[in-house]
Write a protein that binds this DNA or RNA. Structure first.
Lengths: 191, 191
DNA sequence: TACTTTTGACCGACCGTTCAGTCATAAATA
DNA sequence: TATTTATGACTGAACGGTCGGTCAAAAGTA
């Protein structure tokens, strides 16, 4: 119908949408999903409350969009999709990438951790998250199998727990947490 | 003098209060603090909404009471207050106690983890929690110092993260998580 | 003009909280 | 024993406020 400006419109819409998602992620991470109101996000984004509903179907849709984007970004940035086996160096590289992601996208991780705590909400993302985690776990299992571990699966699960724990501690105390030294120790112990 | 004996009154109050706290902990753990309404707790406890305010000053006081009780229980059950040094056996015993506590008081841990995620709420318990955690951390540091570790502090921090991570994973997936095997591996690796 | 974006007043539902009043109980009285 | 009385656990309607969400109309753009 409109001859040409569709591209411009799309661009504006895309940017606005991203702006809303950015402030929403920030606010969700700081106050938690439930405690954050639509009005609060609208105010911070300098738009009206009503406009929120032009871009998202509702609060839950907004959350889902944010999480989906974050998960996909996580997947693409740390895609372990090589030949399927992990060398020593690749494992170390993977660890670095993982924690670098936590450093850069700490708000996403905050939100992720807090959502996982609420079974009623988490079901929505559990499946999607597992799709991301599973290939990593598989890689780890293969790695420890090749390394001759007694119980590679448990070894992999332990490493997973370690990542969660470190991330959990770092993300909520980034200023005082000795992340670099911890990472170094993880490599010494588990690679 | 009085229509009811003081003992009777005390007993009634104590039991009711505990009943409220029990259902509240359960509900907070399941739905999260913010998403749980006073009405919901009252309904589950089979009392009126108003009575809640006879026993607690408000929602936050209810939460604080639950957390305080849990933290104290945690402290008393896993009190590391021996001679200040940890032998190999004592360390293993401590680990067992820690995860046994997670098994038994999983709802408390769920709530604890979820509260730590919301800075606005967590400030209240951070201080108290640190009082519990600090002596453990100190014990660990001493242990690894005696063991001749290069950087005992980081070693202790890593163990702390590991406990958090395992707890986090177990508490939200108790049915499938291979806790026993993981504990065994933790002992092999870190004791 | 024809179309989309944007606004903010508005809605019903539910929130945490309050409070005037009810009611079961057991001590005191007769 | 029968009746009165004092007590505080307990109720539920109501309050001010905020929530997520709606919508008619204004503003902006071609």
């Amino acid at each position: 119908m409109s001859p040409r400006t569709q591209q411009q419109l799309d661009k504006i819409r895309k940017e606005r949408k991203q702006a809303i998602m950015d402030t929403a992620l920030e606010t969700f991470a700081e106050h938690g999903y439930e405690s954050t109101s639509i009005s609060m996000i609208a105010r911070k984004t300098d738009i009206s409350k009503g406009l929120m509903y032009n871009y998202f179907e509702g609060k839950e849709d907004l959350l889902t969009s944010i999480m989906t984007e974050g998960i996909e970004e996580m997947f693409s940035m740390a895609d372990p999709n090589r030949d399927g086996v992990l060398t020593k160096e690749e494992f170390e590289y993977l660890i670095d990438g993982m924690f670098e992601l936590m450093r850069v996208k700490s708000n996403f991780y905050k939100l992720y951790f807090s959502l996982m705590m609420q079974p009623s909400v988490s079901k929505l993302f559990m499946a999607k998250m597992n799709q991301v985690i599973e290939p990593f776990l598989k890689l780890f299992v293969d790695y420890y199998t090749k390394k001759g571990a007694k119980n590679p699966m448990v070894e992999a699960v332990l490493v997973g727990a370690l990542f969660d724990g470190i991330g959990f501690n770092y993300v909520f105390n980034p200023d005082v947490y000795p992340l670099d030294e911890v990472i170094k120790l993880v490599k010494e112990r588990f690679v």
